[in-house]
Amino acid sequence: MSSAKSVSSNQERFLSFSLGIEEYAVPLLAVREVIALPEYTAVPYTPPYFLGIMNLRGQVISIMDLRQKLGVKPGVNTETAVIICDLNGNSIGVVVDSVNTVLNPAATDISDKPEIQSNRPTDYITGVYRKDKKLVLFLDLFKSLSLEDHQAIKKSHDGAAKKVA
């Protein structure tokens, strides 16, 4: 095995993308592919950021709007893209404003997120990276989407069901 390879494996690579005017990144290993926003079917009793289900070459996967989920204002004139991620064997499509680049940051350039007093949960941000004059936030996709969503969807169903009654 070449030494160059082992160096790059020490430095985890990230896929960076834009949500509104902010820049985020997720570990590249969790990304299966990036596609254009396909047609999708809405699913009732799900939160607004849960766009629906889509057909990815015969597999039906959920598609979620990360911008709505994180409460980021969508950018204008963006080439909306869907990042297909693999979260513990479960594929999920995540809608972002645009996919930018693959980052290969040195470990020393990554720092912990600054502790900010806030009511909003921030545990899905695992760290920050300063690139030139920009700030890139590293996301834990599992935390920002999956676990929490189970409950959110359930609540949404129960609540809506009561309304129907």
Binding site: V43, I53, N55, H150
Partner: peptide, 27 residues
């Protein structure tokens, strides 16, 4: 019958999904 992702498997009224003739999934 196509299984749906874990995120929405808690929806009991949705027993799965199917891909219709035009390639779009239906519940």
């Amino acid at each position: 019958i196509k299984e749906v992702g874990q995120e929405i498997q808690s929806l009991k009224w949705m027993s799965g999904s199917a891909i219709l003739g035009d390639g779009k999934p239906a519940i």
